[in-house]
């Protein structure tokens, strides 16, 4: 079974854990508890293929950014999450994306832009077009979600798996896709 290392990134309070826990356990976490670093494993079927997802839910607090480097190095695909109710969380993602690209030393990293809390339409400050535009400029997928109302939660994880598949089609040898050998072949 192919393994996928997925990383959920974004500012504090955007709902990274809510999305992850909703996806993994099907529960909406009512109580707010800032994450330091949580990891989950979940087996799913994507396009008729069994996959083992290893999901790393990260800290949004900037004090923990020293750890981000490692997540980025080891991760294969990234969910970049903002809250549609807070402009700053949207703006923060640009830096995150740049950091991922630097660490990976390539321009093509599987990622999905996620606008969470889309159930709070009344409090929306980041327009859907803004998100779509950003995703277009990044050449990546874009989905608005609600962990609370369970909207598009599975979709973002599945899309990310597909994006990884697209970039690195499974070499049917069952080879472990851990080490970043691919980045060496650039030159």
């Amino acid at each position: 079974m192919r393994e996928y290392k997925l990383v959920v990134l974004g500012s504090g309070g955007v709902g990274k854990s809510a999305l992850t826990v909703q996806f993994v356990q099907g529960i909406f976490v009512e109580k707010y508890d800032p994450t330091i670093e949580d990891s989950y494993r979940k087996q799913v079927e994507v396009d008729g293929q069994q996959c083992m997802l290893e999901i790393l839910d990260t800290a949004g607090t900037e004090q923990f950014t020293a750890m981000r480097d490692l997540y980025m190095k080891n991760g294969q695909g990234f969910l970049l999450v903002y809250s549609i109710t807070a402009q700053s969380t949207f703006n923060d993602l640009q830096d995150l994306r740049e950091q991922i690209l630097r660490v990976k030393d390539t321009d093509e990293v599987p990622m999905i832009l996620v606008g969470n809390k889309c159930d709070l339409e009344d409090e929306r400050v980041v327009g859907k077009d803004q998100g779509a535009k950003l995703a277009q400029s990044w050449d990546c997928g874009f989905v608005e979600t609600s962990a609370k109302a369970k909207i598009n939660v599975n979709e973002i994880f599945f899309s990310l798996v597909r994006a990884i598949n697209k970039k690195n089609p499974d070499t049917r040898g069952g080879k472990k896709s851990g080490k970043s050998k691919s980045s060496c072949t650039l030159l």
């Binding site: 500012s11 504090g12 309070g13 707010y32 800032p34 949004g60 607090t61 900037e62 004090q63 109710t85 807070a86 700053s88 969380t89 923060d92 409090e123």
Partner: peptide, 19 residues
Amino acid sequence: TLDHNTLFRGNSLLTKVLD
């Protein structure tokens, strides 16, 4: 801040100043 649950959770000038 609309949702007090996320009070001081963003990366703002205030939180950086406190850090």
